[in-house]
Computed example of a mutant assay.
Amino acid sequence: MTRAQRRPSGFTAVRIRRHATGLLMAGGLIALSACGSGDDSDGSAKRPVPTSSAPAPETSSASADTQKQAKDTVLQAYEDFWAEQVKAYGQADIKGTNLKKYATKKALGRAMGDVLVMKEAGTTTEGAPTHKATVTSLTLTGDVPKASLSDCLDISGWKTVKTKTGAVQPFPSNQPLRYVTTAKAERWGNQWMITDLTPNGNRTC
């Protein structure tokens, strides 16, 4: 009697201061039954009957969903941070804003420093910058989840004005109006915080 063999068939430079892990097991093993002894009445040997292929394991999308949700939350925190920063620059003061809710460490220190310089210079800002940010890296493991972002910041509609007169201060001749800004964020409890913001004035976008 012969036996069939089995075969395994991813700023603020204001003018002030300028898986896919492929599942290779998707093809199941095909088992061939052993042929019987002797011949059939017609003289032909029995043919091995293949069993049904094992179903491919289901691929869970939970991990991808978690990553997407986290990225969306990071981006929202970044937008909220910018809204509060613009508000602070518009009055040359962080009082009455929620800047400390969304910024900390270097990002908060930079914003507070800019506000101080503006207050001493008697300037504020009008309008707001526009940006298109993306999350370039995301780590949800460890004690403190972290993320990095890249933004194409457009400050052409964000004017610096003299507080007393409202006179618009011109942009320096070498000031790019669209440039890359990078940011870092950390999740503290349930809140993502912007911890660092770095303008890259030599990288236009």
Rank of each mutant, 00 (worst) to 15 (best):
T134V: 14
P170D: 07
S137T: 03
K162N: 13
P170C: 08
T139F: 11
S137K: 07
G166D: 02
L153Q: 14
G142T: 00
P145S: 03
L138I: 01
K159G: 00
P170V: 02
G157P: 05
P172N: 07
K146N: 11
F171R: 14
G166V: 04
V168F: 01
T181H: 11
T182W: 00
L149G: 00
S173R: 15
P129C: 04
D143I: 14
P172W: 09
L138V: 00
L138Q: 00
V161M: 03
T160R: 15
Y179C: 05
T182E: 01
D154N: 07
V168A: 04
G157N: 01
L153Y: 15
G142R: 08
V180D: 10
I155L: 14
W158F: 10
S150M: 10
F171Y: 11
K162Q: 13
Q169N: 12
T130V: 02
G157H: 09
L140Y: 10
T134P: 11
T141Q: 14
A133V: 12
Q169A: 13
G166A: 00
D154P: 05
T182A: 00
K132C: 09
R178I: 10
V161C: 07
L149A: 00
K184H: 15
D151Y: 02
D151E: 03
T160N: 10
D143A: 15
V161G: 07
P176R: 06
L177K: 14
H131V: 15
L153R: 12
A128F: 04
V168P: 07
P145E: 07
V144F: 14
Y179M: 03
K164W: 04
S156F: 04
P172G: 05
